[in-house]
Simulated assay, not measured.
Amino acid sequence: MSALTVEKVWKEYGDQIVLEDVSITVEPRAFVALVGASGSGKTTFLRLLLGQETPTRGKILLDGVPLPPEPGPDRGVVYQRYSVFPHLTVLGNVLLGMEMSGSRHAARLFGKRRAAAVAEAREMLAQVGLDHVEQKYPAQLSGGMQQRLALAQALVMKPRVLLLDEPFGALDPGIRAEIHALMRRLWHEHPMTVVMVTHDMAEAFTLATRVVAFERRRDRPEEKLRYGASITRDIPIWPPRRAGLPSLIRPGRDGPALAIPQSE
């Protein structure tokens, strides 16, 4: 399970109110796109879900349990700026999380445990189409390949919730379309809930199961300190998209292809 429950959350920095009375329930395996103008609190909300920030008021629950006060392996994150380590190879980047969680003091695995981790990392690289460049360094990869690597880094830790902060905004349109197709496939294949911040409305409606808009209802200069942003729209996508299930309308695009019986 990976249900998120946000109950009457406020976030304030001193006298500045950023988020005001935000409540939302995100069902397991949903793909939620957060949209809104710059400064409407989308990234702050994502940081609250990650655990980088704590609510001033209200609470956030994952499967009914309060979120820990710091980031953990149950929540993966991918940023617009590729969060990869330039001194490590592609394989080393994907291995690092498993080594650090499996051996916190040495940050390195040995013997059978390392062999199993290497096999798992290579399987993940194959899923994102990078198995042929595992010994290259990030500087030798294109932008699209680096973003695939960042996705592999996050997904190899098997997060229950994957958080995406404008992850495809810096990519060229053609590469972005390829990454969108990859993201759809990974969402269908991995048991996770996805929450993505984007300024691209077409991207939001292409990928998400619902689109949630953040907005400051009171945005005059003299009101910006006293009032924060809240959710003003929550739009379910039609026809519904469900992880692991084909779409009856566009089975090849919005979900796994429908199995067609072969005539004998």
Rank of each mutant, 00 (worst) to 15 (best):
V161K: 00
V195F: 02
H105G: 10
R113L: 10
G169E: 06
S247F: 06
R253T: 15
L164H: 03
L62I: 01
R241M: 11
A150S: 09
G244D: 07
Q52C: 12
A243D: 00
A107M: 12
L50I: 05
V128F: 10
A115W: 12
I60D: 04
R217K: 13
S103D: 08
R218L: 12
G169Q: 05
G39I: 07
A208S: 13
G143Q: 07
L125S: 01
R57V: 01
D131M: 11
W10D: 02
F110W: 15
L151F: 09
V156T: 02
G102D: 03
A154H: 01
P159M: 00
G143F: 11
G129I: 07
P167N: 06
E134C: 11
D219S: 15
G228W: 02
I60T: 05
R176V: 07
A106C: 07
T44G: 05
V161Q: 00
P256C: 09
L67I: 03
A257V: 15
S142G: 12
I175L: 12
G102V: 03
Q147V: 03
L95N: 01
M1A: 10
R75N: 02
E99R: 02
P71L: 02
L225E: 13
L4R: 04
D234V: 06
R233T: 13
R242Q: 12
G129A: 11
L162N: 00
A150Q: 02
I231R: 01
E123R: 15
H180E: 11
L96E: 10
P28T: 03
A229P: 04
E27N: 10
S101F: 09
P221R: 05
E27M: 11
S263L: 14
R57N: 07
P167L: 02
V32R: 01
R242I: 09
T209N: 06
V212Y: 02
Q262G: 14
I175D: 06
R81D: 15
L34N: 00
D234E: 13
T25C: 11
D15C: 12
L19Y: 07
L125A: 04
P251G: 11
F45R: 00
L164M: 08
R160I: 00
L61M: 11
V35H: 00
P246L: 07
L258Y: 13
Q147E: 09
P261R: 06
T193S: 08
L34T: 03
E12R: 14
G143I: 01
V94C: 04
Y79A: 03
A37L: 13
P69H: 07
Q140T: 10
Y227S: 08
V35L: 09
R29I: 02
M145E: 10
E215V: 11
V161A: 02
I249S: 15
A33K: 02
R108K: 12
G102E: 00
T193A: 03
A121W: 04
V197L: 05
A229V: 04
A116Q: 14
R184M: 12
R210Y: 10
A154S: 10
L155V: 06
G14V: 09
I24Y: 10
Y13M: 09
D254E: 13
G58C: 08
A150F: 01
R57W: 00
P251E: 09
G102Q: 05
P191Y: 04
R218P: 05
R148V: 03
M100G: 09
R216G: 05
Q80K: 06
A229C: 10
